[in-house]
Simulated scan of single mutants.
Amino acid sequence: MMMRAGLKEILAGVALLIAGCAPAFSFDAATDAVLGSLKIGKVLHQNALTTLMSGSQRWCYDQQQNSCGWSDIYLDIGDERVSYEGSTLWDEATEIAVVHELALRDDRYVCEVAETATPTTRAIAVGSGQPIGGRPLAELKAEIGAAEAADISYDCFDYVLISLAQNRESLILRQRQYINGTTDAANDVSVTLHFDPTVAHSLKLRW
């Protein structure tokens, strides 16, 4: 009986060890295939890009430890357009989330489109986490609308793979901005794609 009990304890310990080594989540087949085909330093083409948009939990721009300069969550992926909810801090006390659309072009670019996103704006008070509504939200939307009208460029972007985590739970891309067809490395931004929902939801925005 003592030997059997000891064997059970050993087996239980092995089972716990295996469970601890198992991934916290699994990829769908399309995402898994794309992650297996990516090459460091190569531009992502449309199929890979849209698959990662769909399969990832959050795109964290200029990540520093557990904070993002701003972040995107992709909502709908079409053949010619995609939509995403972009989140940022409008000021130190106000986080905003706005739905935008992008056009897919030339098998590699995502391009801003002319539709205004202001009506979709959600706002949250940073200190309390409470949603902002009513007149304060209406005033905020007016401010955002004025900023949009003053800064309309409709630029395009493409993405180059920088690194892929060994466990594939995240990867880093370099976003390149094209203004009138020209890119400047000074405008490049790193973006970390997170696939683990626990990690993605734990990230904070910074001012």
Rank of each mutant, 00 (worst) to 15 (best):
D32K: 14
S202F: 05
S170R: 15
T31M: 14
T51P: 02
F195Y: 09
D151T: 06
S37Q: 15
D62I: 02
T31V: 14
H201K: 12
A138H: 11
S54D: 06
S71D: 15
G69H: 11
H100G: 00
V34E: 09
G6K: 11
R108D: 01
A29M: 14
A93Q: 15
F157L: 05
S56Y: 02
I162T: 09
N66W: 06
T198I: 10
A200G: 05
R176F: 04
N180K: 13
D32V: 03
T88Q: 12
R58Q: 04
A19P: 00
S190D: 06
Y84N: 00
G134R: 14
G134I: 06
V199K: 15
A125C: 12
D28K: 07
V98Y: 01
S37A: 15
L161I: 13
K42G: 04
D151R: 12
E148D: 15
S128A: 07
V199F: 11
A186I: 04
E9M: 09
L104T: 00
E143P: 05
V110P: 03
R135H: 10
R4C: 02
Q130E: 14
D28H: 09
V160N: 13
I96K: 11
A185L: 08
A147C: 04
F195V: 00
Q64D: 03
D196H: 04
D106A: 07
W207C: 03
D188Y: 08
S37F: 06
N180G: 11
Y154H: 09
T51A: 01
E85V: 02
C21M: 06
G41F: 13
T182F: 04
E92M: 14
